[in-house]
Amino acid sequence: MLRSFVKAAVLAAATAFCLPGAATAADPLKVAAVYTVPIEQQWVSRIHKALTAAKERGEIDYAYSESVANADYERVMREYAEKGNALVIGEVFGVEQAARRVAKDYPDTAFLMGSSFKPQAPNFSVFDNYIHEPSYLTGMIAGGMTKTAKIGLVGGYPIPEVNRLMNAFIAGAREVNPQASFTVSFIGSWFDPPKAKEAAFAMIERGVDVLYAERFGVSDAAKEKGVLAIGNVIDTQADYPQTVVASALWSMEPTIAKALEMVKAKTFKAEDYSVYSYMKHQGGALAPYGTFDDKIPADLKAKVEAKKQAILDGSFVVTVDDAEPKSSK
């Protein structure tokens, strides 16, 4: 089901985002991606979706490897560089040193990698999913929808790219519901739906009635137990129409568009692309309410909309807090 969802999203995006000055079908850029997890995984699915859309438009030749073990990551990166790919993309959490070593050995290849660390001159750029802004908005919704004032959060690992989203979510929930308490759990995996589901079940048994689904599997538990879930990175409401009340979306299209533009113009350099995940660049967004449009109280929706506009016009700034979130005492 997850793979079908990703394929459908890719096809829908193929004509949705146009890159100014994109390569023509006769002159596509060679682009490769190296993923440590399956392309169904939320984070990677967004990169894959944007790159496949560029391929469908004829801008790039796109090859990728998924579920690459950390021990094999450096080898696969080198193989793609040796094959003449102009741009190599991936997520290097856990393989930072190896990835940066490869970049040094191939200075004429552009590397754009998901990373918690800084760019490395001259050719190693980084990006991250800075969707803390829509995460704050989904937190507001969670705070307004909970009946027990008990909210649960299930994440993969307590690293900055997860922590900042959870902390923003908690801050948003507290704005609407100062009495809310939070239970936080990390499963120690980026893709283990059964483990995430069990962690969610344990929270529901303790009275949690809204769950932040940072990992796949959480919404399944919420559905089975009749509680609500908040989605992360992608919108899974179509699969959980009575469960997923809202989602913070991440779009990699702006990031990919900028990178392709720079590579094509031969001006690519070591930079931090994280800003292209912000709402003002359309890299982050609050998903449509869909099946919950008439279930969310009108006053709550008004508060969320006002906060959204404040974020976009700069009058409200969501704090970036990378510290590990803790359960309420």
Rank of each mutant, 00 (worst) to 15 (best):
F17S: 10
T183K: 10
Q282W: 06
P241F: 03
Q179A: 14
V154C: 08
D209K: 13
V31W: 05
W250L: 09
E161P: 03
A8E: 09
V245S: 10
V208G: 02
G231R: 13
V245Q: 08
V68N: 03
A98D: 15
K225F: 04
V154P: 07
V95G: 05
A53W: 03
L249S: 03
P107S: 05
K223N: 09
G226Y: 09
F117N: 04
A200M: 04
E91M: 08
A25P: 12
G144D: 14
I170H: 00
R100F: 13
D128P: 00
S219V: 02
L312W: 15
K258L: 02
P254H: 10
T109R: 07
P254K: 10
V218K: 08
T36K: 07
K225C: 04
Y73H: 07
F191Q: 11
V318I: 07
F182V: 15
M279D: 01
T24M: 11
S65K: 08
V320Q: 05
A257N: 10
A99K: 01
G139P: 07
A173V: 10
A26S: 05
V126G: 02
S45W: 04
M279T: 01
G58I: 06
A221Y: 11
A54W: 11
H132N: 12
N123C: 02
K7G: 02
W190R: 11
Y73Q: 05
A13Q: 05
A98Y: 05
E40D: 07
V154M: 10
A50Q: 14
E253H: 14
Y62V: 06
G152M: 10
A265C: 09
H48K: 11
V318G: 07
E253C: 08
S115Y: 03
L260M: 09
Y240N: 07
G21E: 04
A270M: 12
F117T: 12
P297A: 12
I141G: 00
F191N: 06
V102E: 00
F201Q: 06
A246V: 15
F127A: 12
E198R: 15
E79P: 01
D105W: 14
S328T: 09
L51C: 12
R215S: 01
A149F: 14
D209R: 15
D108I: 14
V44I: 09
D239G: 15
A222N: 06
F182I: 14
R101C: 01
T148M: 07
V184W: 04
A171W: 04
T236I: 07
S251V: 15
I47F: 05
R101P: 04
H281A: 07
T243F: 10
K30W: 10
Q309T: 01
P193C: 14
E91T: 03
S125W: 03
D299S: 15
G226W: 10
G139I: 14
A180I: 05
E253Q: 14
A213D: 13
K301R: 09
S181Y: 09
P241N: 11
